[in-house]
Design a protein around this nucleic acid. Structure first.
Lengths: 237, 237
DNA sequence: CGATAGCTTGAGTCTTATCAACGTATGTGG
DNA sequence: CCACATACGTTGATAAGACTCAAGCTATCG
């Protein structure tokens, strides 16, 4: 029944996750409230909007997309979550999940019952602090994304997206220059507020300009500098 | 020196702010760490990006805009904050303010030194919970804004903006149908990712269609239903 | 009183969406 | 195992929404 699952103490990404700055005994305590279920298959839902909020989730491996559905039925992807990232924080305030989360590939997820986490964070200052740091970081990241969506052109958005992914893969010990896009072109387009066709065209354009090589889902960044420049600056003059 | 300032206990908007769900004695405790400085004048800065993070701020009256400046120097407004709202939460994770905040009109602000708040939240579970709820709410709101910016046309954005403002004024006991736009057209445009000219044209269009009346900075919503429909739905077929 | 910031309106342009067609891969049921 | 359906991706042609540029108007302030 219970798998001999990895513990927080030995989890390779614990420094990207909740246990940051905790003492050994505190991590053990945290670990004891965490549930680890069987892997989510591709396209399996982690939670749906409207469901009662019970737990937040930490991605252990794979990739989870979170998204909302507007009243008019359009999907808006709000994030692609890699190992170490926390999902479900938007549900704390209302007690119901406003968004949904779905696995983009086979993924392992740690379930952290919120009422237990809440109680534990009363006993462990470092845990309380880290939770707040994680939330603060998400607020900050969302604001950067707003800037991206509001002020940048289509190619700048895609470049920034690739640079961001690259950096996040790098932090996880994977290659910064060559990685797999787990999400579809449609997902990327949706996330960046573009049409699929535009994303497709931009990939070919970036490739023609020698910034990247792309073969199906595998991207290789061949000119990191130029890609960074494109991602960061607006030179419309 | 110290003004005979309003205390949290008697603050009219304490139920929109941090003291939610706290016992009388707990509110007193919270109040004791809060600093109330003299009002900010219009265009005065509350903090600048790059500054060391020392405190979060609660708006007591007036309106504060928060914004970031991209590497290429463009301003991106991330929010207009009314009474009861908390500013500076994006700085917790890094210890430096990534954004700036400036008063749009004469405004009163409560300064809440973060290290004191942090310690106090170790003693008062309800305070810890409320802080997390406030942050969760901000994450949720930012995600809604992303949807707005990504998926909606210019008129839908402006309509949604007005509906949102209306609701927030209503919660503060002010009229939902008639209020003042404290921000300039330029600020609105920036926030919504549009050009000033577009916002100006849309205001006149909304007025011609009988949804609103606008005289300088004063908006009157004359057809709430239609404005709501426009804000919520996408009917491009 | 002039200067400046904010707002409005018009004309023209450009980026990106939309529509359409086609190619490719994957999986399913007969 | 093949035929078919479906999802995903690419490319081209066209159209539209929003931006840019330009001009003029109003209000505020020193």
């Amino acid at each position: 029944m219970a798998l001999p699952s990895i513990k927080c103490q030995s989890c390779s990404i614990n420094q990207l996750c909740l246990p940051v700055m905790l003492a050994e005994s505190e991590v053990e305590h945290l670990d004891s409230i965490i549930q680890r279920k069987k892997p989510l298959n591709k396209n399996e839902m982690l939670f749906r909007s409207g469901e009662e909020f019970q737990a937040i989730y930490a991605v252990r491996s794979g990739c989870i997309k979170s998204y909302t559905i507007s009243e008019s039925g359009e999907e808006q992807i709000t994030g692609f979550h890699l190992a170490g990232e926390i999902i479900g924080l938007d549900a704390i305030s209302s007690g119901k999940h406003p968004s949904m989360a779905k696995a983009l590939e086979t993924s392992m997820v740690c379930t952290i019952p919120y009422h237990k986490l809440e109680m534990l964070s009363g006993e462990i200052p470092g845990l309380r602090q880290q939770l707040v740091r994680v939330m603060s970081r998400e607020i900050h990241d969302d604001q950067e994304l707003m800037l991206l969506l509001n002020k940048k052109s289509a190619d700048e958005r895609l470049a920034a997206f690739l640079v961001n992914l690259s950096s996040r893969f790098g932090k996880r010990g994977l290659s910064r220059t060559c990685f797999n896009l787990v999400m579809t072109r449609g997902d990327i387009a949706n996330y960046l507020g573009l049409a699929v066709e535009t994303v497709s065209r931009l990939f070919t354009k970036l490739q023609q300009n020698g910034l990247i090589t792309i073969k199906d889902k595998e991207v290789t960044i061949t000119d990191f500098n130029q890609l960074n420049v494109l991602a960061g600056s607006k030179c419309h003059h």
